[in-house]
């Protein structure tokens, strides 16, 4: 969003939800930053083979913003060309949010078993899925298994099907392009070379070696 648009709608300071407890610092971010964060989360999600932590708060905030901006737009005269540009912007943002959520759903559907088992292993503060996503994944898994049972597995001797053989795992060693946002030391790559991650440099490395850096936010997949 351009700065002009920020002026058109009141420059709101958007706050986190969960601001019930007073000891938590309210993190105020502008709509512009919010969009940037959502865009980077979207890019990361699209390019990484594994599922990343869910930016639920961002999504909720963004959806709230979209609804709010739509209300404002209703008030403007239909023929104003600014309305058209704003509407286009809204459509684009909606597309980004929808694409982000869809990408995650696709990963859930493809790597259901793997993601669920990994998720269960993780401690509560490092969870990557939202509650709704967990429910979706579990229900989906169950429905597919039930389907297989119904149509095939019940007709054959029970111990011939090894469910563990059917787990689909993402290729965590697949290479990804990324750009370094904040310099964070060195990484040893598969050829046993040391790669120094300086700010604003771009590299291509296997995902697994740098996955924690993505989550921390020090690098951005492109």
């Amino acid at each position: 969003m351009s700065d002009d648009e920020l002026q058109l709608f009141s420059e709101e300071r958007v706050s986190n939800d969960g601001n019930d407890s007073e000891d938590m610092d309210e993190e105020l971010i502008t709509p512009q930053k919010l969009l940037q964060r959502i865009e980077s989360a979207w890019m990361n999600e699209k390019h990484s083979p594994d599922i990343l932590p869910f930016q639920g708060e961002m999504v909720d905030l963004m959806l709230g913003q979209l609804a709010h901006m739509e209300e404002n737009l209703e008030a403007i005269d239909r023929n104003d060309f600014r309305k058209i540009t704003h509407k286009m912007e809204l459509e684009r943002i909606r597309f980004i949010v929808a694409s982000y959520l869809r990408c995650r759903l696709q990963k859930l559907e493809e790597f259901t078993q793997h993601i669920l088992t990994e998720e269960r292993k993780r401690p509560p503060d490092k969870k990557r899925l939202s509650d709704a996503e967990v429910k979706f994944a579990e229900d989906f898994f169950e429905s597919v298994e039930r389907h297989f049972q119904l149509l095939a597995l019940r007709h054959i001797p029970p111990n011939q099907d090894d469910i563990t053989k059917r787990i689909v795992r993402p290729n965590l060693m697949s290479n990804v392009f990324f750009r370094v946002v904040k310099s964070c030391g060195t990484v040893v790559n598969t050829n046993d070379e040391e790669v120094e991650l300086l700010e604003d440099s771009q590299h291509m490395l296997p995902y697994q070696l740098i996955s924690d850096l993505i989550i921390k936010g020090d690098i951005q997949l492109i």
Partner: peptide, 16 residues
């Protein structure tokens, strides 16, 4: 549908 409704106001992911 359940997943899509879990967001405030629901969100239609099959559009856009």
């Amino acid at each position: 549908a359940n997943y899509m409704m879990s967001y405030p106001n629901g969100i239609n992911l099959t559009a856009n």
